[in-house]
Design a protein around this nucleic acid. Structure first.
Length: 380
DNA sequence: AAAAGGCTCAACCGCGTACCT
DNA sequence: TAGGTACGCGGTTGAGCCTTT
């Protein structure tokens, strides 16, 4: 049953490609075009896995690729898009999952999305350039490469949310950076010996092992309300032991070898725009201080527009204001004036409710305003 | 001059989803 | 429908090159 294997994995060549092998692929592709990569090694006379051939072609041999250095303009764009896309997928997901109409997201993967905006560059190029150059450049400038905020603001944000998220005697786990910044750890008790600067890491993640989407179930509003409630403060469960793992700091994300992926990706499935596929895994949170939720959210609204992204249009255009953004701002302001948005530590519960209510209110308003457009997105 | 350490980037690995038999 | 691979992705690795001591 099933397909036959594409190649004898134990008997294929690995490692660097020779010019002769490159020439074979180029000759094959120029003659037959790209199609089924599993056939390419046999037909091109290569002792390689089809997957390896595909990678060589897409990352190196494609004639439209640039092989020169990244220009300052390209670097600026990568930083800009990384800031817009990079680490804020989850809140977009939450908004989306609460049926917020403008955010029926199609969250393409980060590097490929950025690479699409840079003609002649691959996702691998962009990823490598980010990891080796741009991330360090930002760090030298005192900017956190994950949140794209000044380091001191990230620290104060984290201090704020740390205060908020202690429940009874159960402190929020803390992400720590070792003295040489080489490792990140997640601990369940405040490391009193560390200064704020030492103890924060990329602050971007709060691991919440209880917040898994039920497998194979469509996203469900009740579940997501629970998620939001968890995120905002209540019922924070202690992390499981395996979360107390060392992780690489190179990407500030948790190592996939020892810990479940922290990403929570959401995609509109091709061919059925109303269906979401959800990879159940640990939720990734960007804990700006609660008082910054509105800023944070407004960013999300302008940044994630799946229709434009699918059309491959310039993502930077998405950063402009929208009427909904103003509505959100107004709603936030109203609630702030009413004292219901958390500005002070310890008002988390009302903040949670307000946050959810704001989203649902806006959702209802948008549904009223554009029923014919939005009805299709209310099913999940 | 050469040893050590750092850096770069092509290639690989593992995962989730799509698709095929 | 089940069981398998293909595909596409992000994360990681390691050989080769470069810089520093």
């Amino acid at each position: 049953m099933g397909r036959p294997p594409c190649c004898d994995k134990s008997n294929v060549r690995k490692g660097a490609w020779t010019p002769e092998e490159d020439a074979k692929i180029l000759a094959y592709v120029s003659k037959h075009g790209i199609g089924n990569w599993t056939l390419v090694p046999k037909k091109a006379g290569l002792n390689r896995c089809g997957k390896s051939c595909r990678l060589r072609w897409t990352n190196y041999l494609r004639p439209d690729l640039k092989h020169d250095n990244f220009t300052p303009q390209e670097e600026d764009l990568i930083v800009e898009l990384h800031g817009a896309i990079g680490s804020r997928l989850v809140v977009g997901f939450l908004i989306h999952s609460l049926s917020f109409p403008l955010s029926h997201l199609c969250l393409d993967s980060r590097w490929s999305l950025i690479a699409k905006q840079l003609p002649g560059r691959t996702d691998n190029d962009v990823k490598n350039h980010w990891n080796t150059k741009l991330r360090k450049k930002l760090q030298k400038m005192g900017i956190d490469p994950i949140t794209h905020k000044p380091m001191n603001q990230v620290v104060s944000d984290f201090e704020s949310i740390s205060c908020l998220t202690s429940i009874g005697n159960q402190p929020m786990p803390r992400l720590n950076r070792t003295a040489n910044n080489s490792l990140l750890t997640l601990t369940n008790s405040p490391p009193s010996s560390l200064s704020p600067m030492e103890s924060f890491c990329s602050i971007d993640l709060v691991m919440t092992p209880t917040l898994k989407q039920p497998e194979n179930n469509p996203i469900n509003d009740n579940h997501l309300l629970n998620v939001l409630a968890h995120l905002q403060v209540t019922n924070y469960d202690a992390p499981q032991p395996h979360y107390l793992s060392e992780v690489s700091s190179t990407s500030a994300s948790l190592s996939s070898t020892s810990i479940p992926s922290p990403s929570f990706s959401v995609k509109a499935e091709s061919g059925s725009q109303n269906q979401l596929s959800c990879q159940p895994s640990v939720v990734q949170v960007t804990p700006s201080s609660p008082s910054n939720w509105s800023d944070f959210l407004l960013g999300e609204l302008s940044e994630f527009n799946p229709i434009k992204q699918q059309d491959g249009q310039d993502l930077r255009g998405l950063l402009s204001s929208t009427s909904t953004q103003f509505q959100m701002q107004n709603k936030m302001n109203e609630n702030q004036n009413n004292g219901s948005i958390v500005g002070n530590h310890g008002e988390a519960s009302s903040s949670t409710n307000s946050f959810i209510e704001i989203i649902l209110d806006l959702d209802r308003e948008m549904q009223k305003a554009f029923p014919e457009v939005l009805n299709g997105f209310s099913d999940y």
